[in-house]
Design a protein around this nucleic acid. Sequence first.
DNA 1: AATAACATGTAAACGGTTACATGATTCG
DNA 2: CGAATCATGTAACCGTTTACATGTTATT
Lengths: 181, 181
Amino acid sequence: MLNLQTICLGVLYSGSKSGYELHKIINTDLKHFQTASFGALYPALGKLEAKKFIVSDGKKNPIQTSSLPKKIYTITENGRAVFEAQILKTRAEEKLTSDFLAAFHFAEHLPAENIAALIDSQSAKLQEEYRDLISTPLSRMSEGQRFGIRYTIAINRAATAFLKGEGRAIQATLSRRLPKG
Amino acid sequence: MLNLQTICLGVLYSGSKSGYELHKIINTDLKHFQTASFGALYPALGKLEAKKFIVSDGKKNPIQTSSLPKKIYTITENGRAVFEAQILKTRAEEKLTSDFLAAFHFAEHLPAENIAALIDSQSAKLQEEYRDLISTPLSRMSEGQRFGIRYTIAINRAATAFLKGEGRAIQATLSRRLPKG
DNA sequence: AATAACATGTAAACGGTTACATGATTCG
DNA sequence: CGAATCATGTAACCGTTTACATGTTATT
């Protein structure tokens, strides 16, 4: 699986950025397949720098208080080569972890109101994701990126349609159960 | 997020099982939203046992060579209560990590044959998942579990349809690019 | 007797989250 | 001058993967 280091190389490939900017890009543009917290991002950048895959212009000297705290990372030639090799050997792999589906798997332990809440909340999340996806400006985006967005939208729509069609039905069915005792 | 310990409690709720059986159940019946390796499973069971949420009938005595190595885990009353509380407060959360989408995001660094391979491989994986999903015996399954399977099938179909419809088109588009130099 | 499947576990390393800690810059 | 946002980083902890290590039971 592609790890955060490789993702960072990929984002830095198209231009130098600070850790903070990288964080923003990953958690907006790449949100549908990757996220990163600062606690994951900074150590990843540190490791990439140690391996000479990226360089920074940072003044890490704490005495120089007047210097900008902002540190711009730039990918090296070595880094580019490593990224290209990595992305070339990438296989179609996906891993979903879903509390929504897990909760339904064990739904016999849930009262009807919780079932309803889960479906409503999942629908809302899908709607929010949908808004994010369609609001992304398609210009300045590569063909591959557009393809990924459209793929994700197709899945999002199917999920929403399913919940709209069958969500009420399952709520009704599960409400008819005998209360556990 | 629901962790493996809680998932184990959930599976043991409906009947006592060995670690090995638990492993098989999670990686078949729960495959569409959760997997677990032995290296993750056994420590999780050990922690649950330490907390008295489960008990085992294991003869851990290595001198007793004649005893069965099989260890059956049973959920305790305390464990049931903890699981019920956990599942009750579960929120609709989902996390997808996709090398397929990541590769497409950076597809400008990929030659056309890799694009084609990625789409073919993703289609094959979806088909395989689909076969698994429809082959699951619907009897002896709760309403909630059936709902989860149908939800996953709806998404799987949408993904397959998208790749069938637009997969060739993107391959053609990306093949028309100038080779990088 | 060999092989596949059953069965349990550990250790090192990895990757990530959450919370903490600090400080600068910009805008109203 | 206060608030939001920009900005970097560490530490403790958590959960998992991968590889290793070992042995049993059932089938052919």
